[in-house]
């Protein structure tokens, strides 16, 4: 079986000439399906940049990246439809939930399968199931503004999961939450990884949740170093 994510020698340069910033200087990473890995590093080390490259939101400058064995970027070559790739294969969770305020909770989640062409009724059923799995099923009819921060974050996770993408990218998903809620979110992500075989990368600064990762990538000055969680704990 192919790794869910496989990148090698990935670089990203922002800008040109004197103003150029080399945010990624050569990143190697392998994540297997069903794995939840942490990505930690100081501010400005390139965490968000790496996540954006992985999420097909920005293009790397050089290097190779494959998802489930299929090349996405390969030394300047890239797949044609990055938008469809994002829609079908990647789920995003951000620091803030960024729900759409003019849609109710169900439709915030159902929007994704709808965008992929699923009929409204079926998409809403799927959304309700996912909301129930995340313990916010009872808030399915609510407006976004009526939810607590933790509930919003769980809705955002439901949205990331609803299309059952093979990959979920989370950028500081626990930052606004207290430690109990933060651990709940990580527990949910772990459950989902196990249930659906999703590969999950979590960027974090959060000391409380770092021990929960079995594997951690450190990133410093645009380069990654791998560390096993247990080894670190020992």
């Amino acid at each position: 079986m192919h790794p869910a994510i496989e990148i090698s020698g990935l670089t990203k340069r922002y800008g040109e000439g004197d103003a150029a910033v080399d945010a990624l200087k050569g990143v190697d990473m392998i994540v297997q399906p069903g794995e939840v890995v942490g990505l930690i590093g100081p501010s400005g080390s390139g965490k968000s940049t790496l996540l954006k490259c992985l999420g097909a939101v920005i293009e790397p400058t050089a290097g190779r990246m494959a998802l489930a064995g299929e090349a996405i970027y390969d030394h300047g070559w890239k797949v044609a439809d990055l938008r469809a790739l994002r829609r079908d294969r990647i789920g995003f969770v951000f620091q803030a939930p960024y729900l759409i305020p003019f849609l109710d909770v169900t439709d915030n989640v159902a929007l994704l399968p709808m965008l992929a062409g699923m009929p409204n009724g079926k998409a809403r059923d799927r959304a309700r199931q996912m909301l129930a799995a995340l313990d916010v099923g009872h808030r399915a009819q609510a407006q976004v503004a009526q939810l607590s921060g933790g509930e919003q974050q769980r809705v955002a996770i439901a949205r990331a999961l609803v299309n059952q993408p093979p990959i979920i990218l989370a950028d500081e998903p626990t930052a606004p939450l207290d430690s109990e809620r933060a651990l709940t979110v990580i527990r949910i992500l772990n459950e989902m990884a196990q249930r659906f075989g999703t590969a999950i990368i979590v960027v974090t600064h959060d000391e409380k949740i770092i021990p929960t990762f079995r594997r951690i990538y450190h990133i410093r000055d645009g380069r990654t170093y791998e560390e096993a969680g247990e080894a670190r704990a020992a």
Partner: peptide
């Protein structure tokens, strides 16, 4: 913000 999210989750420019 909403439009960026819509684009990120794969909404078409047309949409």
């Amino acid at each position: 913000r909403e439009i960026a999210v819509l684009k990120l989750i794969g909404a078409r420019n047309r949409t």
